[in-house]
Write a protein that binds this DNA or RNA. Structure first.
Lengths: 213, 213, 213, 213
DNA sequence: AATGAATGAGTGTTCATTCAT
DNA sequence: CATGAATGAACACTCATTCAT
């Protein structure tokens, strides 16, 4: 398993200030990149949106790629946190899986701009940055693999997609982001529910469990 | 339903030569864009790859956006053709749906570079180009909606995902392209089969039909 | 006195066809240049306006400069012809001068687009073309010098501007073209009359002659 | 009366530096444009002549049109200043008018390159720039209208050219610039004097005043 | 640590001119 | 003689990055 983070060089020593500023930069840059796309957006745009000057910006990052990396890390962490938060404190493996799926689907719909940004611009990352971001995503997929495995061991009959289960459940909900141009006008929560049901059924889950609370 | 094509201006009159050259350009540009990404690739790169001079290139297109549009149209048409070809001459609705899914999944795996390109760069298209390309995709989704409906009417019990069925079956296989960084080393045809089975099961299809020839 | 014409190379032999085509080109180019300016207009624009293809155009001229030269010759010849026509058959020297001035002022107002074009783009001509065009203009100024001299000899007291008379009378009316942005809304013929009276008075012409028919 | 200035965007904040640099740019660009003409001159030429890099140039202007506008404003302001300076502190209306005419004629002769540039390239200005520059010129013409009116009220009999007087006196001296190709070899001050006398006589001014100091 | 002006390589696009058919 | 596709040099403009203050 490779490291899910990458070191970013800085001109400034104060570590806590670096953390603060980088969060500020990531937040602003995400906004700008969502609006204009990574390549179209300029460093000037990002600096302005973050309330910094160009020069100051470069005290906390070394290149435009660094900014894109910060954004990826940040946005990815957000939807992961959504899922973790949803299952925190839950014990029943079946309920945990179902809750995780629901939280993930919801995040994909609500954070559609962020997700679209990730899927569109990951390829624009430099080699090292991409490696780190994909490692982060891989950990997330592994997390779901664990949840599925636990549910299976718990007696939830799920023999569907023995090899791809974790991939599938972490990919299909992305549809709510990437097909937003089609789904803009459908009922959001209903779509989430339909998707989760589809996933569970595809996994081979019995009907009476699919629709539980 | 809006038009799935857009007119591209040209300086050249001979229509058949335009067709020929544009195919040549689309093919070369797809290669270049897959390698470097749309924004990083230069017009010079495309011209060179197509064996044309910059000036000649601009006799057949009017802007870089035109090239991206040509590429989108071309690549989209290819996987659509794969699917159509797979079901040509088939009569049984259930078999047609299954064959269409298999062909689509296969195309997504084999044409992974093309598909990734589409998903990454559609947002870089100009307004009109994007409209046309999405209309083309929408027609494809509608095609699957028809196939599903026919199978249902034919008695294939499929009450899963009543509203999103066509979206789901045209999106999940895209995973074979966009998750290639993870799936590079799995058995391709097996993955396709697993995916198709997952989809049919999710749609509520009985097990004995899922695994038919 | 240097030649008021310049030879333009051609790929075509038939002299009468050359004359014909070049007239056609000059007329079309004048239209295009008036609309867009010489530098902004393209050879394509000119060819289209003339109903020729680019290739054919180049059978009758050798460069864009040739076209500008043709236009200058043509437009200059037109206002000169206006003046000549106005005094053709007149015998009285004072009446001839007055009629020439009136015709010239009128031409400057009515052909304002042509005149503005000449004054704006003469500097864009190549060395040889400019020389020829200025020689043509110089002949015109000399013509007026002759008219003034004749009127003086005839007893019209005109001792004003002994050295610059011909320059002045051939320049001031140009105002009706170059100040069109200000004079667009004044009464045209009245302005012409006022200008001519101003010129005659400035030349020292007695009031009773200034206002003659 | 519309505004005789137009705002030019800048990437730089220090206002005094902007003033300084723009003056430097206008001066250098005027030189380059006089030599090669606006369209033939490149941004590189201008930057080089101004001792700046291309990038730096664009920190102070936004487009080539901005440069042409700066040049127009600057050159127009110069000859206007010449006239104002010549009549500063003079009280007698007739003397003021005569002095203004002499100063203007002199400026037209001495600044012939600038004036020719203005007359050749005003049409190349963008809509807004042209509007501003013509407003500036219009103010100048109105200034002369005021001087003439004052002289008339003061008893200087000047009933010639009741409607066009200000236009005429601000246009005819331009001849010293635009006909320089003919007048290069005549005595400059004598030509100015002859021109001024012609104008005053044309306005209906009595001979004894025309030749005053 | 913050500022913001300077840099210059690089980009999409245009167009006068040529020339094979 | 007409056609119209090919050419490629050139141009205006952008922007990530640096660095003196």
């Amino acid at each position: 398993m490779s490291a899910a983070t990458r070191v970013i060089g800085a001109q400034v020593k104060d570590e806590s200030r670096i953390q603060e500023r980088r969060a500020q930069i990531a937040e602003a840059a995400a906004r700008v990149f969502r609006d204009k796309g990574f390549h179209t957006a300029t460093i000037r745009d990002v600096a302005e949106a973050a309330g910094l000057t160009q020069g100051t910006l470069y005290n906390y990052i070394r290149s435009k790629d660094d900014i894109l990396y910060l954004v990826h890390q940040d946005l990815t962490a957000r939807y992961i946190a959504d899922v973790e938060q949803a299952i925190a404190g839950m014990a029943d493996p079946r309920a945990r899986l179902r809750a995780a799926l629901r939280a993930f689907a919801r995040a994909m719909r609500e954070r559609h701009g962020d997700i679209a940004l990730i899927y569109q611009e990951t390829h624009a990352l430099g080699r090292e940055s991409r490696r780190a971001v994909l490692a982060q995503t891989e950990n997330f997929i592994a997390r779901f693999a664990g949840l599925i495995e636990a549910a299976r061991r718990d007696g939830m009959a799920m023999d569907g997609a023995p090899n791809l289960a974790a991939d599938i459940v972490t990919f299909l909900p992305v549809m709510l982001s990437l097909r937003r141009w089609r789904l803009r006008h459908v009922d959001g929560p209903a779509a989430e529910e339909e998707l989760v049901a589809f996933l569970l059924r595809g996994l081979g889950c019995p009907e009476e469990i699919i629709h539980g609370a």
